[in-house]
Design a protein around this nucleic acid. Structure first.
Lengths: 203, 203
DNA sequence: TGTAATATTGCATGGCCTGCAAAAGCGGCA
DNA sequence: TGCCGCTTTTGCAGGCCATGCAATATTACA
């Protein structure tokens, strides 16, 4: 007789738990060391020693030390995010801020990561590379609600640009989603203002 | 008796000319090989062989093969660009489009480079890293005309976001500067539209 | 022509990252 | 408990990228 646990909770099993544990250990070590010493002065081997894994294992989990320090989920649009986006009321950009923001926010400790990025701007290139990676997915998502492909791309471009700012001022009590919306609003203001004036001028 | 050339044209001298020539040779080789084989399949040594320089010399000119293929000028705000920006009429974003666009346009063959980037998206990360590098300079520039530091940063954020788009549709006959302005305009439209609606809703 | 300045090169070094195959650990089953 | 299939971890080999240093070649100029 198999002694399986009776409840229907998908308990992950020892295997999966250990994997997450290893991943977390690597991330923790990378985070701490890079925060203390900076990116360039920290070697992968150092991180491996601290996390007690082989360097080969390290690269099974992360493609680079910077990625390990950030440990952002593969910025994939989850089904849940997608459903919420499609159901959300409000405009395209408004809803997109929610999708992007909450997706990023999923990371257990995005506040810590934002601080790390602020203290070590070298990480910005890695971060923006990751966002670039995710971009096409968000465009596809946006296209499901946009009136045109172009509008979808523009909206994503705007929100992605806002992320850079939204991550910086972590201090304000607002959630990342709200900060994204606020920044998008400001961007529209700073441009729209004079742009409409310019359009008048040129016509 | 010194036999100096009499005219006041700053002719560069043999030394400088050779340097530019070497730089150009490296760029040309990197461009061609990467266009043919992709970034990852092209090694620095291949580029060096094609350009007939040692690999050590390669790194005296460019920090990476991707940078060599793009060969964008160190995206520094030239005095001329700065002067034109300060003198320009029109709004902050409007003028900034000119500064960023013409600065990028200085590259002798930005059209070729835009095509290369489109054909090899891996180069996007390098490109955006370069833009990130230049960002602070443009923020400083913008601050000289902006009413606040925040406005300066927002304006630069917007224009930089537009660059990504502006580089893509090289086809339209417009200049990069005009395309930047157009995109900034669109961005403002796509956001401003619903954002003001949202603001009304939340108040 | 001779000297100073600068550019190029070779060499050594260290770090990053990947593929491959062996070893170790986990999961189920009798 | 003991065995078998699967997944993860590890070691190793190897290639590439990138930088510092010192020697050499080239240019500038008097």
């Amino acid at each position: 007789m198999t002694i399986t646990v009776d409840d229907h909770t998908d308990l992950p099993g020892l295997r999966e738990r250990k994997k997450q544990q290893t991943r977390q250990a690597i991330h923790e070590a990378a985070f701490r060391l890079i925060d203390e010493q900076g990116v360039d002065s920290t070697t992968v081997d150092q991180i491996c020693q601290a996390a007690e894994v082989s360097s080969r294992t390290f690269f099974n989990y992360f493609p680079s030390k910077a990625a390990a320090a950030l440990a952002l989920p593969t910025a994939t649009v989850s089904d849940e995010t997608r459903a919420r986006f499609l159901a959300a009321r409000g405009g395209l950009v408004w809803a997109l801020c929610d999708a992007v923001g909450s997706g990023t926010e999923l990371s257990p400790d995005h506040a810590r990561i934002a601080t790390l990025v602020r203290r070590h701007p070298e990480l910005l290139t890695t971060l923006s590379a990751m966002m670039l990676e995710a971009r096409s997915q968000f465009v596809a998502l946006a296209a499901e609600r946009a009136s045109s492909q172009e509008q979808a791309e523009l909206a994503v471009t705007l929100v992605m640009a806002a992320v850079g700012r939204g991550i910086r001022d972590e201090d304000s009590g607002d959630s990342l989603v709200d900060r994204l919306r606020h920044t998008a609003d400001q961007l529209a203001a700073v441009a729209g203002h004079e742009m409409t004036a310019a359009r008048d001028r040129s016509s």
